[in-house]
Structures are given as structure tokens and as C-alpha cells.
Write a protein that binds this DNA or RNA. Structure first.
Length: 308
RNA sequence: ACGUGGGUGUA
């Protein structure tokens, strides 16, 4: 049984959902009962596939077998429902966990806050922040980054910055994801000065910029027609020992396409392939779109052929 | 022993 749980958990974790389902069936037949952890891992895997129906079934089965779900199990389902646009079901799970005497923790609150942001109910998300504070549960870097993102995407960059100052005051404020989120907020507003200020602040704080940091800033420059500046940032990131990824190149390709510079776009596509980076569907869509806009269909064949 | 939440590219 110990071994079953271990193997089962591993299968779920590495996304071998088919194998996990298989083993689950065999375990059921043999009467081997999983523990909370393996059940939860299974539910995580199902939620990742957006298979909330089966996730909920497995949840019911664990109840039938008297394996009590814990806060992690509930959080997993709540997250799954939120990510699948089933916010109401997520809330039902919250009610249910409370009814079973399991207290929502910081992850529960943060997950629901994210769900609310996704529903464009940022104001309610902020209210929930208040509620959790009242419960003595204090927001962490996850909670903050989610709220920054929600506020920025709702056009409330100023409020995000205010909240960032609160965060700094409470001793956090040194999280790279929070910086990236806010940099994106500034970029999306076209405020590259603000974005760059935060970009510099990262180093001042002794934090390390990541690939996402660069990608975000680069996209900001591309969006205002300064792809050349973005390209210089690519050199900069490499000097810092950061390897560009598909997103980096797609961002640049997109920038040049928007400027109508298909030559540079094509050159960057070559470059990324030469470096062993695989263009994905988005890369090709960006290119196809850029080419279509220019009306050079012959080039499409050339570029696509070349990239094979 | 093992399981849950955050950021970047395409209209």
C-alpha cells in the first residue's frame, strides 16, 4: 500500500495521467486504499487537464472510502474550479470545507482572490483581502502578486503601486514575481519610464532579474514601436547569463512584424532556431499575421519552409 | 516519505 501510494503519487506528479488512472483502477479492484496525499495528487493531475468532472468524482470516492480530504485537497479543487471558469463551484467547496471543520488558510484565500480577479471582480478581491487580514491571515507574496495583476489588468495601476508600498511596509516587497507583474502593468499602460524604474529597483534590492523580467520589459518596448531597444535588452540579458526562451524571441518577432520589418522578424526566427529554440504555435501565428498584414504571401512560404 | 496558490509573447 505504501508503495502503491508512492508510485501513484509520482505518476500523477509527472502528468502520467493515463498510468495513474490505470493504477487507480487496479488499486480499487485490489481494495488498496490510497491516502489523502495520493488522492490529492490525483485530483491535482485531473484539474490540470481541466477534467473537473472526474476530479470531483475522485473527491467523492475518497469521502466514500473514509479518507478525509484536508485543506490541500480542498484548495486543489477550489483552484481547479476557478481555473475552469466555475467560480460558483469553487465557492461551494469553500462552504463545504468550512462545514467539515477545515479552516481556509492563506492558500484558500489567495486562490479565491485569484478567482475573483479572473472574474473581473477586483473590488471583491480587495474586500476578501480585508477579511483575511481580520482572520489574522496575512497576505504573502502570492496574494500580493495576484492582486497586483488583477488591479493592473483592471486599469488600476496606481492602486497596485499603493498596495506595493503597503507590501514593502510589511516586510515583503522583495519578490521577483511581484516586480515582474508590476513592470507588466506599467508596460501595458505604455509607461516605460515607470517600468524601467522598477526594473532597476530589482537590482538595487539585490534581487535577480529573470527571463520573464526581460521578456516583459521587451514586450513593453515592442508595443510602443521600439523593437530595437527590446533587442538591445536581449544582449543585456545574455550578458547577465540569462538564456532567452521562445517567449523572448516571439516577442521580438512580433515587435518587428508590427513595424513591418519582416526581414528582421525572419532573421530572428532563424536565430532562435539556430539556437535550438523551437518556435511554437504562437510564434507562427505572429509571423503569419505580420506577413498577412504586409500582403507578402510568397515570403510566408519562404519563411515557413525555412523554419522546417 | 509524498500533494495545493502568483508574473511575460499571438487578434
Amino acid at each position: 500500500s505504501f508503495t502503491y501510494n508512492l508510485v501513484f503519487g509520482s505518476l500523477c506528479k509527472i502528468g502520467k495521467i493515463k498510468g495513474a488512472k490505470n493504477l487507480y483502477g487496479r488499486m480499487t479492484k485490489l481494495g488498496v486504499v490510497g491516502n489523502v496525499v495520493s488522492y490529492t495528487s490525483f485530483i491535482v493531475a485531473l484539474c490540470r487537464e481541466k477534467n473537473l468532472v472526474e476530479a470531483k468524482m475522485v473527491f467523492s470516492e475518497m469521502l466514500e472510502k473514509d479518507v478525509s480530504p484536508d485543506v490541500v485537497t480542498y484548495n486543489t479543487l477550489i483552484h481547479g474550479f476557478c481555473g475552469n471558469g466555475q467560480f460558483e463551484d469553487a465557492l461551494k467547496m469553500v462552504t463545504e470545507m468550512i462545514a467539515h471543520g477545515i479552516n481556509p488558510d492563506i492558500v484558500t484565500y489567495t486562490t479565491v482572490i485569484k478567482g475573483l480577479c479572473k472574474e473581473r471582480k477586483v473590488e471583491e478581491a480587495l474586500e476578501l483581502l480585508n477579511v483575511m487580514n481580520h482572520q489574522g491571515l496575512h497576505p504573502d507574496k502570492f496574494t500580493y502578486s495576484i492582486l497586483f495583476d488583477g488591479l493592473c489588468k483592471d486599469g488600476r495601476l496606481d492602486d497596485a503601486v499603493r498596495l506595493f508600498n503597503d507590501m514593502k511596509g510589511s516586510g515583503f516587497g522583495d519578490d521577483i514575481v511581484c516586480y515582474n507583474t508590476l513592470i507588466d502593468g506599467f508596460c501595458k499602460m505604455g509607461d516605460m519610464e515607470g517600468a524601467y524604474r522598477l526594473f532597476e529597483e530589482i537590482s538595487e534590492k539585490g534581487l535577480e532579474r529573470g527571463v520573464v523580467t526581460y521578456n516583459t520589459l521587451m514586450d513593453g518596448y515592442c508595443k510602443i514601436g521600439k523593437s530595437e531597444v527590446a533587442r538591445e535588452l536581449l544582449c543585456d540579458m545574455e550578458r547577465c547569463g540569462l538564456g532567452p526562451d521562445v517567449v523572448t524571441y516571439t516577442t521580438l518577432v512580433c515587435g518587428y512584424c508590427k513595424e513591418g520589418n519582416l526581414e528582421q522578424a525572419g532573421h530572428l526566427l532563424d536565430e532562435m532556431i539556430c539556437r535550438g529554440l523551437e518556435p511554437d504555435g504562437i510564434t507562427y501565428r505572429v509571423l503569419a499575421d505580420g506577413i498577412r498584414r504586409k500582403g507578402v504571401f510568397q515570403e510566408a512560404e519562404g519563411l515557413l519552409y525555412h523554419s522546417k
